[in-house]
Simulated scan of single mutants.
Amino acid sequence: MSFARRGDDVRAELGALASQVHPVFMMPPLASSAFGALLAGTVAPAPLVLHAFAAFFAVYTAHLKDGYVDFYVRDEDDDHPMTETGCRRAILLATLGFAGVTVAIGSLVGLVAAVLTVPMWLLGFLHAPQFDTHPVTTTLGYPLGIGLAILGGYAAQTGQIAVRPLAFSLVFLVILAGVKIVDDSQDYAYDRSIGKRTVAVALGQTRARRLAYALFYAGGTLVVIFSVSSIFPAAASLAVVAFAAVVLFADRAGATVATMLLVRGTYVFLAFLVAAVWYRPLVGVPLPDIGVLGPFTYLATEFVFGLFALALLLRAKALVRAGVTVLALYPLAYVWDWYTLTVGVFAIRLRTGVDLFGIPIEEHLFMIVVPALVIGLHETLHGHLRPEA
């Protein structure tokens, strides 16, 4: 069928088709589809396999179309292993394959599952040249595909959608958008030269990196919130710790190395989430009860967070500035605290019972520790964010 530009035997034709299977980009959608099925609890093999094939055909279509556009339409690539006609025929075959498994999903599971599968192919087919030239669509296309793979994998098992797969889809959309921003920064100079508006081109490399790390922070925060509210298993929060460790190393690296670290970090992140969902290691484990400290409980928490605030201020060399701000704020905080305690807005049970100037001594410390912690975080964050050149 003349798929290959070089050679006309079966081996050359198959090699040309196989050249557009990129495992680094292909494996995450397949794993996400399986993860969505895992969220359903009981996994039926047939829908699992069908949806995984749908994800494969969708991503394969994207790779075929992207290579075709970059070489034959934009003349950006130096070489391509497939003929122009072969690219078009392969896209058609991949589309037919996707349509076949989607119909099978609809017949086996239901209309909802089939409808949630279709957007994966649309994202793949429209990636180039429609979506890959605008900062928003070029950044969110692949992350949105991963989110749809999770949601569709779940629907292929249950025939419906639910809050938990939606929440996981949102988390991966946010975090992978950050990874995509860093990834696109590798081609900043080239993209800028051809007028391709990635986030790095639109915002500049420094601001783009800041946005990426803000998205990592937002995604991690969502995991913690969903874990505390029992949408995710409690152990899911451990995935945030693992990914945060990778982010810290990536922060010190250039775009290429950072991308390598972050991509692998997302695999670790997913592995922790799979373990949390499948094994639920912290189910039944009670929260640590620091109430055993009795009347010294409140003081103990202030001591711990006070040390944290002190460490941040010392690192940022902002101890004196913070002291001036805390002193300026103190009279207002004191009156506010005294009034709310007097009228009964709140009560403190686990305290020493020692009062000073009409309020518990713990509240005096609170009015020092909390502003100091806020200032310490502010100074550390903004001291780290270097001005853009």
Rank of each mutant, 00 (worst) to 15 (best):
R11F: 15
D75T: 11
P331I: 11
V59T: 10
T61A: 15
R207S: 08
W121S: 04
G145M: 10
G97C: 05
H80G: 08
G291I: 12
V285K: 07
I91G: 03
A333Y: 10
L173F: 10
D70L: 09
L282R: 05
R351V: 13
I231M: 13
F243Y: 13
F308W: 10
L356V: 10
L151H: 00
Q20I: 14
I290R: 10
F98Y: 01
A104V: 01
A114C: 07
A200P: 01
G152Q: 04
V369F: 06
A94I: 05
A253V: 08
Y60G: 07
F3P: 04
S19T: 12
L111H: 02
L203K: 06
T61I: 12
A258N: 03
R197M: 15
P281R: 12
V354Q: 07
P371M: 10
P286R: 09
P45K: 02
P81S: 10
L270E: 04
L377S: 07
G291M: 10
Q130C: 12
H127R: 06
R351I: 14
G306V: 05
A202S: 13
S19Y: 15
Y267R: 07
A189M: 08
S227C: 10
P165C: 13
L123Q: 03
A34S: 03
Y213G: 06
G353D: 08
L17F: 02
W278L: 14
E362K: 05
F53H: 04
F305E: 09
A52Y: 00
I150F: 11
M367V: 09
E379P: 04
H384Y: 08
F226S: 07
L148H: 03
F366Y: 11
S227A: 15
V179Q: 01
F308C: 14
A218Y: 02
G383R: 04
L270Y: 08
L350P: 00
A300D: 09
T259F: 14
V223S: 07
Y334R: 12
L173N: 01
G7D: 07
T139Q: 00
E362G: 05
G110F: 03
G353R: 08
F226Q: 01
V241W: 06
L144T: 04
L332A: 15
V246G: 05
V59M: 15
D9Y: 10
L211S: 00
G323A: 14
A212P: 01
T301L: 15
I181N: 02
T42S: 15
L111T: 06
L151V: 11
P331R: 09
T256R: 14
V112W: 08
D66I: 11
G306P: 05
F357I: 11
V326M: 12
F125E: 03
F226W: 02
L377R: 00
G153F: 06
G353P: 00
E76V: 15
A52K: 02
A212K: 03
L238K: 04
V277N: 12
I368P: 01
D78L: 14
K196D: 02
T102R: 01
P286C: 11
V49A: 13
Q205D: 08
A46M: 14
L64R: 02
V285I: 14
V228S: 08
P47R: 06
A236L: 04
L319A: 15
V285N: 09
Y339D: 12
G153R: 04
T301H: 15
A318P: 04
D187V: 01
A372H: 01
V199P: 00
V223H: 04
A212Y: 03
R88N: 10
Y298W: 12
H378P: 02
R315Q: 15
